[in-house]
Computed example of a mutant assay.
Amino acid sequence: MSYEIGRIANTHGIRGELKIKTDSDFDRFVKGKVVYIDYKNERIELLIKSVRETNDYLIVKFDGLDDINLVEKYKGLSIFTDEAPTLHEDEYHYQDLIGLLVYNQHNQKVGVVNDIIEVPQGHLLQIKTETKMTLVPFVGAFVKDISDVIIIEEIEGLL
């Protein structure tokens, strides 16, 4: 299974380094690890040679890509790994939640998870109901159970 772990935002300097915006809460960009991109319907594996952090990005150097002309074409592409991180209890991959049916505490279907949105206060489940999109805070007060479906505590005004 593929896991998207970041996006190439831009080049950095002339020696082939790339500015990467990471999408992962896990430490996925480590020297010696192999990640990949999809470029023109071809999977290109990249060995991480070095990584350093800036305020908003990681500056990553890949083995064999030592010139800006070799990496410029990759700007805007997503970076993936096949390596699944170890999840602790009550941790989930976004892609595992998207598409799950959502029911309320009375076993009435509410809708389906359309997206997970990060906000400074945490995460929100974007749920597509029959008539609209609605947001539910992804916290224990509202999300009561996650298995093959998600059970939420529906309070007045939530949906």
Rank of each mutant, 00 (worst) to 15 (best):
I5T: 05
E45I: 03
I116S: 11
K49G: 11
I5W: 05
K75T: 09
L77W: 03
G111Y: 06
N114S: 14
G99N: 03
R43V: 07
Q121H: 13
N104M: 04
I5G: 04
V112H: 00
V139C: 14
T131W: 12
D66H: 09
S50R: 07
T81E: 01
P85W: 02
V30L: 03
G6Q: 00
Q108G: 14
P137Q: 08
T134Q: 10
V143L: 11
V119I: 15
H12Q: 12
K33D: 08
V136E: 01
K49W: 09
S24P: 00
N41I: 11
L135N: 08
S147P: 09
G157I: 05
I48N: 00
I117T: 10
L135V: 13
A84R: 02
N55A: 08
M1F: 08
I5C: 09
I79M: 02
L58M: 06
E53A: 11
D66S: 11
I146L: 01
I20S: 03
H88P: 02
L125N: 00
D56Q: 09
G122S: 09
V113G: 13
L87P: 03
L87W: 01
V149W: 05
H93Q: 08
E72L: 14
E118K: 15
A141T: 15
N10F: 11
D38L: 13
N69C: 12
L100T: 08
L47C: 11
V149T: 15
I155K: 07
G13H: 03
I5L: 08
R28E: 07
T11V: 08
L70Q: 14
F29T: 02
K109L: 14
E72Y: 15
I5V: 09
